[in-house]
């Protein structure tokens, strides 16, 4: 009986594999060419490292928030940002491009490009905000260094899949010019920092998810090989 059951399972998986080729729009898995690169140990290593660092950033955000924001009304736990919507628009903080699960429409190189872009954006944003608000928090610096390191690894991944890097969304000087007059108000600078951190948190969560998808655990790869 188990034999029959096993055979059924085997046959069904085979059919799935056989069917995945002609119906690419259904598959959430990356294309076979990307798969090959993804399986390489260097890519996996870089992805794991990047994932680790992004996890580190996620863990550090609350601490950074605590050290930077002393305005009691701005709490990280409060996910409702609707009341700050007006200020957000008026501040005009640059937004990262959204991340999507890897598919044929949203390929690996694009995903990595978006991650790089987002990381760079937040790095610049936090740097500028930190400079403008004269805060010398170690936690913020730590975040910036981690962002730098994460970028190193994502760059490495990009190199492995031979993807080109897009232009930076914002430059540091431009952003400084934009934000300098707005952040003279202490409250506004706090709000900007708060918003930037929340934005970073959301982005890193997405990035973490994307990277986790790129990491193939040995067990998973074995099952796929078979």
């Amino acid at each position: 009986m188990y034999l029959f059951f096993g055979m059924f399972l085997a046959l069904s998986t085979l059919r799935r594999f056989a069917l995945s080729a002609p119906l690419p729009e259904l598959g959430l898995t990356p294309s076979s060419q990307d798969m090959e690169v993804m399986k390489s140990s260097a890519f996996q290593d870089a992805a794991e490292n990047a994932h680790s660092l992004i996890s580190k950033i996620l863990i550090e955000i609350p601490a950074a928030h605590k050290s930077l924001i002393y305005t009691t009304t701005l709490s990280l736990e409060e996910s409702d940002l609707s009341s700050l919507q007006f200020l957000k628009e008026s501040l005009g903080l640059p937004q990262p491009s959204p991340l999507q699960p890897i598919s044929d429409k949203f390929k690996l190189d694009l995903s990595l490009g978006r991650i790089v872009e987002g990381l760079k954006l937040h790095k610049t944003l936090l740097k500028v905000i930190g400079e403008l608000s004269d805060s010398k928090s170690d936690k913020l610096k730590e975040l910036l260094y981690d962002l730098r390191d994460a970028l190193l690894h994502v760059h490495k991944m990009q190199q492995l899949i031979k993807a080109a890097n897009g232009p930076d969304k914002v430059t540091e000087s431009q952003l400084r010019e934009d934000l300098a007059p707005k952040l003279k108000n202490q409250y506004l600078s706090q709000v900007a920092t708060h918003l930037a951190l929340i934005q970073l948190k959301q982005f890193t969560q997405d990035a973490s998810r994307s990277l986790q998808n790129m990491i193939i655990s040995p067990l998973e790869s074995e099952s796929q090989d078979s």
């Binding site: 490292n49 610096k141 260094y145």
Partner: peptide, 9 residues
Amino acid sequence: SRDWFPLFY
């Protein structure tokens, strides 16, 4: 200090 060394790199 942390400025001058990376992690995992």
